[in-house]
Amino acid sequence: MPTGVAMPDAREQLFAAAERVLLRDGPSALTSRAVTTEAGCAKGVLHRNFADFDAFLAELVLLRAAGVDAAAAALRGAAGTGTVAGNLAGALTDLFGPVAVAIVGLITSRDGLRARLRDARPTGIPILAEATAMTAGYLSAERDLGRLPADTDVDTLAPTLIGAAHLLFADRTGAPPPPDALRRIITATLPGPR
C-alpha cells in the first residue's frame, strides 16, 4: 500500500470501498484491512480519519441513513398523486436497494457497531427507523388529503409495512422480489381505498 501520498476525499473513498466489500463479500468480510485494500490505501489512512473501525462503520451507517431524508421528501411530495400503494411500493423498492439491505445486515451482525450506534441513536435500527418515519410521514399526508381513512393508525401501519418490505428484500444474495410483490403486500395492508 502506498504511504505518504495524499488521498483526496479519503473518507468518502473509504466509505465507498466498505460498501463494495460489503456488497461483494458480506458483513463478515468487512474488516479495516479489507476496506483499505479495496480503497488502495495504507491502513493508517482509516485510523487517521476515525477513532477505530467501529467509529468508521457507525459514521458510514449514519451517513447512509441520513440519505433517506431525500427519499422522504420526494415521497411526501407525491402525496395526492398516483396511488398510495404505488407511491409506497416505488419508494420502498428504491430504499431497499442492495447497499441499504447490506448495511442493515451489518448492523445486526456486529455487537460493537450496534453499541456505538446506540450512543448516537438510542432506539431503532438506522435505515429501518428512517424508513419507518418516511412511511409514517407519507401516510399522514395521504390521510390528511382524505386518501386514507381519518382513523388510519399510521404509527402502527408504518413499521408493519417496513417490516414486510424488509423481509422481501433481506436476502442480499438472492434475486430481488418480483416487482409487484411489495405492491400486493401494501395493498392488502392499507385501510380503505388504495
Rank of each mutant, 00 (worst) to 15 (best):
T3N: 11
T3E: 14
G4H: 10
Q13Y: 13
A18Y: 10
R20N: 06
L23V: 01
G26A: 10
P27E: 09
P27I: 00
L30F: 00
V35F: 10
V35N: 11
C41F: 08
L46N: 06
H47Q: 08
A55Q: 02
F56R: 02
A58E: 01
E59N: 09
L60A: 05
L60R: 07
L60C: 11
V61I: 15
V61A: 06
V61P: 13
R64N: 12
A65D: 15
A70E: 09
A71C: 01
A72L: 09
L75G: 04
R76H: 14
A79H: 07
T81Y: 13
G82H: 09
T83A: 04
T83H: 02
A85K: 00
L88G: 03
A91V: 00
L92D: 03
L95I: 02
P98D: 13
P98Y: 00
A102R: 02
G105K: 03
L106G: 02
L106K: 01
G112F: 09
R116G: 02
R116K: 04
R118S: 09
G124H: 06
G124Y: 12
I125E: 05
I127G: 08
L128Q: 12
E130W: 11
A131Q: 02
A136C: 08
A136F: 02
A136M: 08
L145E: 15
P149L: 03
P149F: 11
D151K: 11
L157I: 12
L157Y: 14
L161M: 15
L161Y: 00
G163F: 13
G163I: 05
A164P: 12
A164W: 07
H166T: 09
H166W: 14
F169T: 06
A170V: 11
D171M: 11
T173Y: 08
G174A: 15
P179H: 14
I185R: 07
A188P: 08
A188H: 10
T189M: 14
G192F: 03
P193I: 01
